[in-house]
Computed example of a mutant assay.
Amino acid sequence: MRGHKNTILLALVATLIAKEAFAAQHVVGGSQGWDQSTNFKSWTSGQTFKVGDKLVFKYSPLHSVVELGSESDYKNCDISTPLQSLSTGNDVVKLDKPGTRYFTCGTLGHCSQGMKVKITTMKGNAPSSRLSPSLSPLLSPLLSPSLSLPPPSSSSPTTSTLASSASQWFISFVFIATLSVSVTISLS
């Protein structure tokens, strides 16, 4: 009986780790990062944001990240009542629920010059980032039909995001395979 309780506990831990591994990290602005020269509307059009994903804001000391509470504040660049203000230059924001969040730079004039981004997070726990065409044939047979890979798009994420997603997927796969063998042995 004790072995079955341990197996159930291991399965729960594996599920939590796999869910975290499937979360994507989106470097806001891609290779340009959180900067005035970045076209954030174009960048977001090539992304899918899901619950559990993380936004990574990378920027110089000239900038900051201010989360705004409403679309009105976002449209009017009103930073007088922020939900949070970040200034490390490498900030990570977890997308923990579905909905829309609004971010801008707190430096005077940067918001009105376009340094702001609206992120709409969807429900779901499937991988958010697409894998490169070269990885798809290798991994597709291992995935269930419900997790099949979408076709590559012309606005795919950067190579570093693809590599990160692929390695996260591989780590999850190896961990779950190892857990399956462990469970099989414990039930024998």
Rank of each mutant, 00 (worst) to 15 (best):
D53H: 12
Q47S: 13
Y74A: 03
G69T: 03
T44H: 06
D73Q: 14
S45I: 02
L86G: 09
I79T: 15
L55P: 15
S72N: 11
P61T: 03
S87I: 02
S70A: 01
L68W: 01
K58Y: 05
P82G: 01
T48I: 03
G52Y: 06
F40L: 05
K58P: 08
Q32M: 14
K75F: 02
K50F: 07
V56A: 12
D35P: 04
V93T: 06
F40T: 04
G89E: 05
V56L: 13
K58E: 15
K75L: 04
T38F: 08
T48K: 04
T38C: 07
V65C: 06
S64V: 01
I79W: 00
V92A: 09
Q84T: 14
S87E: 05
T48H: 10
L86H: 11
F40D: 05
L55W: 14
W43P: 13
F40G: 00
S72D: 10
E71H: 11
G52P: 12
S31D: 12
T81K: 11
K58N: 15
S87K: 07
D53A: 08
G52D: 02
D53I: 11
P82K: 01
T81G: 09
S64D: 07
T88Y: 10
S31A: 15
E71Y: 13
L86M: 15
S72Y: 08
Q32C: 07
E67S: 04
V93A: 00
S45C: 02
S31V: 09
T48F: 07
Y74R: 01
V56W: 14
N90V: 02
S72Q: 13
S45A: 12
D73E: 15
N39Y: 14
G33P: 10
E67R: 04
S72G: 06
S45Y: 07
Q32H: 12
Q84L: 13
T38W: 09
P61Y: 01
D73N: 12
S64F: 05
T88P: 12
D73V: 05
D73F: 11
S87R: 06
C77F: 03
K54E: 14
T38D: 10
D35E: 10
T44R: 05
L68S: 02
S31Q: 10
N90D: 09
G30C: 11
Q32K: 15
S64C: 07
E67C: 01
K41L: 13
L86D: 12
V56K: 15
S85T: 04
D73W: 11
S42G: 12
T44D: 07
Q36H: 07
D53F: 15
L62F: 15
F57V: 00
P82F: 00
T48Y: 09
F57K: 09
K58D: 15
K41A: 15
V65L: 10
W34M: 08
G33W: 04
S42P: 00
S80P: 14
